[in-house]
Design a protein around this nucleic acid. Structure first.
Lengths: 233, 233
DNA sequence: TTTCGCAATAAGTGCAGACATATTTTCGAG
DNA sequence: CTCGAAAATATGTCTGCACTTATTGCGAAA
């Protein structure tokens, strides 16, 4: 990185990781503060800061102002998960993609959905169901509820040409969301839609996204058998 | 953050996010380079750099030296997934944890495992099977293969008192790994171990970790029905 | 003895300037 | 016209310094 005597933040990070690995600093230990490390390693404090921030992001140390940095007691591996638009995911595997809209209507949501969307008892929500196809075969079944009042323009979206999944990603900014992954067995309807055996084990993704205090949408994505979500550490 | 006229990197980030959201900068567009933005927003280039780096980490822009930064064509949401030691995960739910070792032996791995571990045809590997219990009920079935030559000390580890999962996390540094999540149906053996119905849908995690060129271990974690992996964006 | 406020401390961040590095573009030689 | 070297340029990073902010711990007051 640098030809002169400067120490790169990566070098500092690696040295810190080495000390943690080799138990020079044990889980729970306070580690020297930034200024000391900077002096010891011969670099600016900002460089040490950058390095420690990186290590903290990986979950190996915990940092708090005034309290200092300490080696994490229970190292929690942090994996990064990429969640692409389904069309892109399918096409990146070289398969032609198609979305087919099954239904779209305003309905009173069942209690479970109403609770998740935190809407008033009598508020109807937009309910969209459709099937993502990959190479002519069913890939994922999307069952989505949208608070149309919170998502400007969604009433005019044509979900027969673009999936709600993609339309929302492209058109709706959101602050946060939560995602849960689980396994479930295919009901007879699921099986019919996804062209698999009833009772087959299916990978299920449930996502809810919000912006400010409003919950924008909640979706249930049921993937055809064989789907794997993959990531690297 | 700052009381004086200084612009915080968060403010720069928010302004950048705003411009992307409001289509001031459209997907695929080059955005102004750091120096220009710094001048425009009245801050140091380092501050803009920090902000843009953060936005890039979220996947909304792509940056390349000399080529500049551009708004991502297909915004890929990046979720962070915490992968705790199973014991910690169980205990954080307030349930007592217990690991029970089912078997541990050196065996010639089946071809699928051998391929994954990239070992020579006649190399035996350590094979450990055990059950993670939560509150007296089966929680997850761990089926692990370890290259004992690549993991110093593992031959002396007592997996009846500490799970291989936890022992490895605490004792073995590794560079990287890959993780796959999927759904599968319980075989009769799985069902017996996890105390569920055969054919039930189970959440499956497969992980392989390496260090340098050596593959250290590969594990198959099969969770009892009802398990959900949860994360936030 | 308890509690509250203040001083001390360590991380968090901002700035200006310099240099490093990866790419793209340009332009001259053949 | 093609190829390769050199120039240009945007991001990447380091430094030294100053100031901000969250937190802790201690000492004084109740």
């Amino acid at each position: 990185m640098n030809t002169d005597g400067a120490t790169s933040w990566q070098a500092v990070r690696d040295e810190v990781l080495r000390r943690i690995r080799e138990r020079e600093w044990k889980p729970g230990d306070r580690i020297p503060h930034e200024a000391d490390l900077a002096r010891e390693l011969g670099c600016a404090r900002a460089t040490v800061n950058r390095a420690l921030r990186a290590v903290a992001e990986d979950g190996l140390i915990e940092r708090r102002r005034r309290a200092g940095s300490r080696v994490a007691l229970h190292p929690v591996r942090k994996a990064r998960l990429d969640i692409p638009v389904i069309r892109v995911e399918v096409e990146s595997r070289g398969l032609p993609y198609h979305f087919s809209l099954t239904s779209k209507s305003d309905e009173l949501p069942p209690p479970a959905i109403r609770a998740r969307m935190k809407t008033a008892p009598d508020t109807p929500l937009m309910h969209v169901v459709g099937l993502h196809m990959a190479g002519g075969r069913p890939h994922a079944l999307e069952d989505r509820w949208i608070d149309a009042d919170a998502v400007p323009g969604v009433r005019d979206a044509d979900f027969s040409t673009i999936s709600p999944n993609e339309w929302l990603v492209l058109n709706v900014p959101f602050e946060g969301g939560d995602i849960a992954f689980s396994a479930t067995t295919a009901t007879r309807e699921d099986a019919a839609a996804l062209d698999c055996a009833p009772g087959a084990a299916l990978f299920l993704t449930e996502r809810t996204t919000w912006h400010g205090t409003r919950i924008l949408t909640t979706v249930r994505l049921l993937f055809a058998p064989g789907y794997r979500l993959h990531t690297e550490i």
